[in-house]
Amino acid sequence: MRWLHHFAIGVLCLTLAACSSSPTGRQRLTFFPDEQLDQMGAQAFEQYQKELPTVNGAPLRYVECVAEALIEELPPEERAQPWQVRVFKDDAANAFALPGGYIGVNTGLLKIATDQDQLAAVIGHEIGHVLAQHANERASTQSATQLGLSVVQSAAGLEGPQGEQLMGLLGAGAQYGVLLPFSRRHESEADTIGLRLMANAGFDPRASIDLWQNMSQAGNGQPPVWMSTHPSHGQRIGGLQAGMNEALASYNQAQDRGKRPNCRQP
């Protein structure tokens, strides 16, 4: 199925001229203008603040300290955005970053990410999604997949119950063969970007492995990898270990340049 995904994206790139390269050099399909994604990010961030209480004081200062050190390492255009950081009172060990410059961290994550370096691994990963325009790519790929299925249905003249059943199977094939593996690729790419980002900011990249070991111990089971939008913890740790030598070299260079974050835990 992976060859089919690459072929389909390649054809769309040639016909629609809607492709660009991610920070890791991977070809990606992006239909939507940045302004539209930024607006969607702002709306989502506003909605999140309506649904969950925010936490100020020491927890917010701590998260802001880590986030600001990472933001300083972003490319000029992204660094210049007026980033907003919030801490949400929620036991789920989760965090997010949104197009437009929005970062949210749940209080539950602060119990799993036990120091500033582990927290930097999470926030760096989430910022990695934004830098790689994964929201745009995911929406574009889904739109292209749905468009492709509509074309198939029209060309084949599939009507009535049999046609609907076949299209349901084609939809499932598209989901498990293209969209979900693609999402796992997003997660792995965000890990790579986040590892580089935290190392360049002076956070110890080895903490990223400690973080996912903590996540694994705290987890209550995971779905099979082939039906999950996230790599298994073992796969994720393996990917991080593969890039660790390069990250450690960047970390040591950052330390030599005086980049030594000192964010106090609440």
Rank of each mutant, 00 (worst) to 15 (best):
P33C: 08
A120W: 00
H5L: 15
A8F: 09
R206C: 04
D90M: 10
T30S: 11
S188A: 15
E46D: 14
F182P: 00
F88I: 11
L131C: 03
L158I: 07
L110S: 08
W212I: 02
P76S: 13
L29A: 06
G234T: 13
V85D: 01
E64L: 05
Q133A: 14
H125I: 00
G243N: 07
R236I: 02
Y48W: 12
H233A: 13
H125G: 00
L197M: 10
L74S: 07
F31A: 09
G57A: 09
D91R: 14
G108A: 12
R257V: 00
Y48P: 01
D34Q: 15
P53V: 12
P231W: 00
L169K: 09
A242E: 14
I127S: 00
Q162W: 09
N136V: 04
D204C: 01
E126R: 03
P181R: 03
R196N: 13
P223M: 11
G25M: 04
D256V: 11
R236D: 02
P224I: 04
G168A: 14
F88K: 02
V225T: 13
V225N: 11
S140K: 01
L74A: 08
R257A: 03
H230N: 10
V151Q: 07
L119K: 10
N262E: 11
V130T: 01
G57Y: 12
P53R: 08
H129D: 13
L195K: 02
D90K: 11
P33L: 11
G238P: 09
S143R: 08
G157K: 13
P76C: 12
S20L: 14
Q253C: 03
F7H: 07
H125S: 00
G243S: 06
F203M: 09
P76R: 10
L74N: 05
A144E: 11
P23L: 02
G168S: 15
E68H: 03
A97N: 08
L131Q: 06
L170T: 04
P224G: 04
S143G: 06
N106E: 10
Q235C: 01
I209M: 06
T114L: 10
E126L: 02
Y48K: 10
Q241K: 10
D117K: 05
I209T: 06
A254G: 05
A144M: 14
L166D: 05
G101N: 06
L98Q: 11
L4Y: 12
D210I: 03
L211C: 08
G163Y: 13
T114P: 04
V225M: 09
Q153A: 03
A8E: 01
Q36W: 14
C65E: 05
W3P: 13
D256K: 15
